[in-house]
Simulated assay, not measured.
Amino acid sequence: MAKNNVSTFVSAKHNNEKITMLTAYDYSMAKLMDESGINGILVGDSLGMVCLGYKDTLSVTMEDMLHHIKAVTRGAKDALVVGDMPFMSYQTSVYDAVKNAGRIIQEGLAGAVKLEGGVSVYEQVKAIVKAQIPVMGHIGLTPQSVNVFGGFKVQGKDESKAKNIIEDAKRLEEAGAFSIVLEGIPYKLAKIITETVSVPTIGIGAGKYCDGQILVYQDMLGLFSDFKPKFVKSYGNAGEVIRKAFKDYIAEVKEGIFPDEEYSFKMDDSIIDKCIKEGV
């Protein structure tokens, strides 16, 4: 399999080939995804919720992101690794945006960065791209704006907001973004955007007309039982498999079943006898 990069993403749209992406936050999972043939891996700031136990993504720091991005890039050889820019790493100034994007590329060894917003981050995206760093945009339901939205709610359902999201997409394309994540918007709006911009759109809760799709892997594998977003299809109940394995392990240890001789190391009995005789 050829190494995925920004050019292969753009070519996929023009060739009408769907792009596949998932999130990953560690070496072993990134390696499994990479070996499966995934096009891209996003090290999302969603790690704040699924790995660190935060209630949202706002508490995630650059150091958090870099720690996980480094782990993922060690495991992914063919997939394009995109590193998320966390809250307040790019909103404060164009300078901060370029500097922090540079850290994700230079220290994290990612192939691109992702940031949230459209018109509001036009100058940041333009400057990051000018610094030779590929940028993936993210519009619609942007989790870093959860306090403004009043929760994780579908965006763009009325005329004015739909027009704003379309304008966001156009401005991101103009600023030089190589692709745009569309999250939590009506599928007909996503279709319009996908047909309007020349760069690929990656949907999450945005319907089938996007150029590609991305999901949080814990969601699609059923690792969480308390909540599943409407747009997530379950591709396996790994959570139940893991819980059963943990319970079986606990039971066998308590009952003295594990470890038996099959899982233990052996030595010559004569050496044991000699040790006993010599009082060792």
Rank of each mutant, 00 (worst) to 15 (best):
T196S: 10
S264L: 10
A169I: 13
E240Y: 00
Q144V: 13
C210W: 05
S7W: 05
L141D: 12
F9T: 11
S160A: 14
A76E: 15
Q91P: 03
A127R: 07
I165D: 07
A238N: 04
S145Q: 12
V197M: 04
I38L: 05
I250F: 06
A175L: 09
V146T: 14
K244W: 00
A12T: 08
I166P: 02
K126R: 14
S145F: 13
F227K: 05
D268I: 07
Q213M: 10
S36M: 06
V253L: 13
A12W: 02
M62I: 15
T196Q: 04
K77Y: 11
G150D: 12
Q213W: 03
V60Q: 08
L182R: 09
H14S: 12
K254Y: 07
Q144S: 15
D211A: 10
V135S: 09
E195Q: 15
K130V: 00
I193G: 04
E252G: 01
D158Q: 13
V72Y: 08
L182P: 05
K31V: 00
Y25E: 02
M1R: 13
M33Y: 07
A24N: 03
Q213A: 12
G184T: 09
A24W: 02
Y25Q: 06
F258E: 04
N15S: 12
E255Y: 00
I38Q: 04
G212Q: 10
P259G: 10
M21N: 03
L22R: 03
L221D: 02
E173V: 11
L66D: 12
E63S: 15
S160E: 11
K77E: 15
G256Y: 03
L42T: 01
D84S: 11
G40V: 04
E35Y: 01
K3A: 11
I133A: 13
K13L: 10
T23H: 01
E167H: 14
V280A: 14
M65A: 09
L182M: 08
M65K: 12
L32E: 04
S160M: 11
E17W: 01
F246P: 00
G279K: 15
G236P: 01
P134C: 11
G117D: 02
G108L: 06
K55E: 13
K254C: 03
G212L: 07
L223R: 05
Y209P: 07
C51G: 01
G75D: 13
P143W: 10
D168A: 09
T57P: 02
Q91F: 02
Y90H: 12
D78T: 15
L66Q: 14
M49H: 00
K274P: 07
D45Q: 02
V146M: 11
D158R: 08
E159F: 12
D26C: 06
